[in-house]
Simulated scan of single mutants.
Amino acid sequence: MGLRGKLISQTEIKGCKDLFHEMFKNKPHHLPNVAPQTIQAIDLHEGNWGTVDAVINCNFTIEGQEKVVKVSIEDIDEEKRVVTYNIFEGNLIEQYKAFKVTIHIENEEENNLVIWTIQYLFIKISIQ
């Protein structure tokens, strides 16, 4: 038995939406400089930065616990400023059969918004 879900969150950003998109598409290895308390390292494992099917290793901390995942870039849409990552190996896959993160940057009037979408299939449900 599994639980399928989708979480969507919006964050307003100041600054250039194109630079934000560029970081998540081509330069995710710079994220530890932006959020060192959460992201310790992002390294290219296979392929090239900013290309579909590139494989990336991520080391990060959630609630004081260190985690490691392997992620592939599943989709890039330059026009809509969307990058989709598929997590397929590591700590999260121990609890989730599927885990996908989409980062979409858009304008809403004068605001730049980052829309974070997490889709998951949770597999470890025990009913007692």
Rank of each mutant, 00 (worst) to 15 (best):
D43E: 10
H29W: 04
F20M: 12
V71G: 01
Q40K: 15
E12S: 12
E110V: 12
K80P: 04
I42E: 01
I62C: 11
Q37K: 11
T51L: 03
R4N: 14
E78Y: 04
I76S: 00
V34S: 07
S72Q: 00
L7C: 10
V114S: 13
K70R: 07
Q95N: 14
Q65S: 15
K17Y: 06
E12L: 10
G2I: 13
M1Y: 09
K25T: 10
G5F: 13
H29E: 08
P28Y: 01
I93N: 12
F24D: 03
N26V: 03
E46D: 03
K100S: 07
N91W: 00
N26C: 07
T61C: 10
R81G: 03
Q40L: 14
E22K: 06
I73S: 01
N91F: 00
F122A: 07
E89L: 04
Q119V: 13
Y120E: 06
P32S: 02
E22P: 00
I62L: 14
P36H: 02
D53C: 04
G15V: 07
I93C: 07
F99T: 02
N59L: 11
I13Y: 13
Q119A: 12
N91T: 15
N48C: 06
G90N: 03
G5A: 10
T117L: 07
I13L: 13
M23H: 04
